[in-house]
Design a protein around this nucleic acid. Structure first.
Lengths: 215, 215
DNA sequence: ACCTGAACACCGTTCAAGT
DNA sequence: ACCTGAACACCGTTCAAGT
């Protein structure tokens, strides 16, 4: 079981989601495709369990973070840890928290985030919404980023810059009268850093949360 | 072409993404599967163009919204319009803005959102990050919601409540000492409203943005 | 308890050929 | 310019059978 999930994760890391097939996975494990069905009921469960398997390492990293006296700073550090893991393995975004029945580590991570909100002066509803918002920012930004770059993610940073540059060029050719905003931000888009973009989105949410908690 | 996209959208609406196959679509159109390749190069392009086709109606709705004297209120109204469309058609979240080369209406919607930030006292980089954050909240929350409910979305609200209730029950059975946060919010989760959750997440981001703009 | 080979139904995509 | 039938390679999944 352990090695099924480890090899599935390795396949996803090396070649992306469309490379994870029962046949390819079976070949890595040195067996037949049908034997994998002894461990999982279907492909959805394989993806959920593989995702939760690597979320386990993220959870361990999050649990290593020290509690400071500012719960919002702690939430920021946790969210950044999760985001970093998703940047390293973009396929995570699509399956993370898809099914908390199967994804026990994802549920524990959700709990850890939520525990920080227990330290804030909020209603239960505000706490529920706050954690949903933070997870939403992480997943939403990660999916947004993953979709601009098709498979170049696996290649060098130079390839990424060149791809962004070509993309920016098509934006520069748009009519400035019709697309004033796109022209305003195209230089920011060109060569931008994913983590900067995420950190900015997260900080807007956390600023709102800090204000709500009245601190 | 027009009817290819309309029928593809109808299939997605009625039976979800896994029901959209070239063979099923061809049958609706009364022809062979291969003929669809005259209109699109492959399935990704079919999904992108179909998505952009319905985003066109969202764009029309957004353009009908009046500008008030508060750009942040206008951003809220636009984001809610987009979110409502995604709630009605959950499959949109997965493909929206995946490729702005093909998705011209999505690019125009991005531009419309961005134009509101031009009315705020922000740097170009802050504007870029603000719109990314808002799109991230919309897409992230929508994906988050879509993944809790597998296919019950197509059924009645009563089915949804019952599903949430069963889910909440498994949460209530967790150890309260180990999962204090989950217990704190389980009653909020049970029977919660998607739009409330989204509105709360959006408001956190917009509060942060308002503060950044110093107004 | 764990694995296999072979089959089934179903995909996206291609291509030579038609009008 | 637009469509077709038939094929190809490849899926997830099942199942009877093996150890």
């Amino acid at each position: 079981m352990e090695s099924v999930l480890a090899q599935a994760a390795a396949l996803l890391d090396e070649a992306g989601p469309q490379a994870l097939t029962f046949r390819a996975l079976a070949e890595r494990l040195g067996g037949g495709a049908a034997s994998i069905y002894w461990y999982v009921a279907n492909k959805d469960e394989l993806l959920d369990r593989t995702t939760d398997h690597v979320i386990g390492t993220v959870l361990a990293d999050v649990e290593k973070l020290p509690d400071t006296d500012d719960p919002i700073d702690d939430l920021r550090a946790m969210a950044l840890t999760l985001f970093d893991a998703i940047v390293a393995r973009p396929w995570l975004a699509a399956y993370f928290m898809r099914n908390t029945d199967v994804q026990g580590n994802a549920l524990r991570l959700y709990e850890k985030l939520g525990q920080q909100t227990l330290r804030l002066d909020l209603t239960a509803r505000q706490r529920f919404h706050a954690v949903s918002a933070i997870v939403g920012v992480v997943v939403g930004t990660a999916i947004d980023l993953g979709r601009v770059l098709p498979e170049e993610l696996l290649d060098s940073a130079a390839d990424r810059d060149e791809y962004l540059g070509r993309f920016a060029q098509t934006w520069r050719e748009l009519d400035p009268a019709e697309f004033p905003f796109v022209h305003e931000i195209v230089d920011e888009f060109d060569g931008h850093d994913d983590v900067d973009q995420f950190r900015a989105a997260l900080d807007l949410t956390l600023t709102g949360l800090r204000r709500q908690a009245g601190s």
